[in-house]
C-alpha cells in the first residue's frame, strides 16, 4: 500500500477534504516497523506498471455509472476494480474524519512553512512598491514547493493560484505525483465541486466536501494508479 492519505485545504487554511486509505497497522506502528517489507513492495510495483495501466482507463468510464446509483444514500465502494485488495483498502479508510485534528493541522503547518522558506529563498528584488506587493503575496512563481520526503513518507503538494492546496502522502518510493494532483484539481474538483451549483466554492469553517460523486471519483482515481496497491 503506497498511498496513505489525501487532503485538500482551501484558501482559508481549512481542511475541506481528507481521505485516509486503510492500512493493517496504526499510523505509529507502521512508521516504526516498516523498512524491510516496504522495499519489496516498491520493487514489485515497478515491475508491472503496465499491467495496472488498463484498469485506469476502465475506471474513468465507470465513474459515472457508479455515482448515479449512489443517490439512494448508501455508501458504495468504487467500481473501478474488482480487486478485493483495493476494495479492502478503500473500505478500511475514512473520509473527512481527520479534517480538524492535530495531524491535519501539523501537515498544513509544515507545508505552509516549507512553502514560505522556498519562496523566501529566491524572490528577486522588487523595483517598485507595487511589484513588491505582488512578490510578497504568497503564490508567486519564483519558487514552488513540490514535495518533501522523510524516511517513511513522501508528501506531494500542489497549490493552485487561487489558493487551493492538494496534498497526498505516499510511500517514499513513489514517483512524483504532482501531475496527479493537478489532474484531480482540473477534472475531479472542477467537475464535482466548481461546476456543481449545490456545492459552495467558499467553504465555511468546518464545512467539508461530502459529495458522494466526489468521494467516489477520488477513490477511483487513486485506486487506478499503479502505486495504490503494492
Amino acid at each position: 500500500m503506497a498511498i496513505y492519505s489525501f487532503w485538500i485545504y482551501d484558501r482559508h487554511c481549512n481542511c475541506i477534504y481528507s481521505r485516509e486509505y486503510g492500512t493493517s497497522a496504526s499510523e505509529t506502528v507502521k512508521a516504526s516497523s516498516r523498512s524491510t517489507p516496504k522495499r519489496l513492495s516498491s520493487a514489485h510495483f515497478s515491475n508491472n506498471p503496465m499491467e495496472n495501466a488498463p484498469s485506469a482507463t476502465i475506471s474513468s468510464h465507470s465513474t459515472l455509472n457508479s455515482s448515479v446509483s449512489t443517490l439512494s444514500g448508501q455508501r458504495k465502494t468504487s467500481s473501478s476494480s474488482n480487486n478485493p485488495k483495493i476494495q479492502e483498502l478503500i473500505q478500511k479508510g475514512s473520509v473527512n474524519t481527520q479534517n480538524n485534528n492535530n495531524m491535519s493541522k501539523l501537515l498544513f503547518g509544515t507545508l505552509f512553512s516549507l512553502k514560505k522558506i522556498a519562496v523566501s529563498l529566491c524572490t528577486p528584488p522588487a523595483e517598485t512598491a507595487q511589484e513588491e506587493e505582488f512578490y510578497v503575496s504568497n503564490l508567486n512563481n519564483f519558487n514552488k514547493l513540490r514535495s518533501f520526503q522523510t524516511l517513511n513518507y513522501k508528501c506531494h503538494f500542489y497549490e493552485t493560484i487561487n489558493g487551493l492546496r492538494f496534498v497526498v502522502v505516499t510511500d517514499p518510493n513513489a514517483r512524483d505525483l504532482q501531475t496527479s494532483l493537478v489532474d484531480i484539481y482540473q477534472h475531479i474538483y472542477m467537475d464535482n465541486v466548481v461546476r456543481n451549483p449545490l456545492m459552495p466554492v467558499e467553504f465555511r469553517e468546518g464545512e467539508v466536501i461530502s459529495n458522494d460523486r466526489f468521494v467516489l471519483a477520488i477513490d477511483d482515481y487513486w485506486s487506478s494508479i499503479p502505486e495504490f496497491v503494492n
Binding site: 487554511c13 498544513f108 505582488f134 503575496s137 504568497n138
Partner: peptide, 8 residues
C-alpha cells in the same frame, strides 16, 4: 491591495 496569504 494585493491580499496576503491567510495564516491558519
Amino acid at each position: 491591495q494585493v491580499l496576503k496569504d491567510e495564516i491558519p
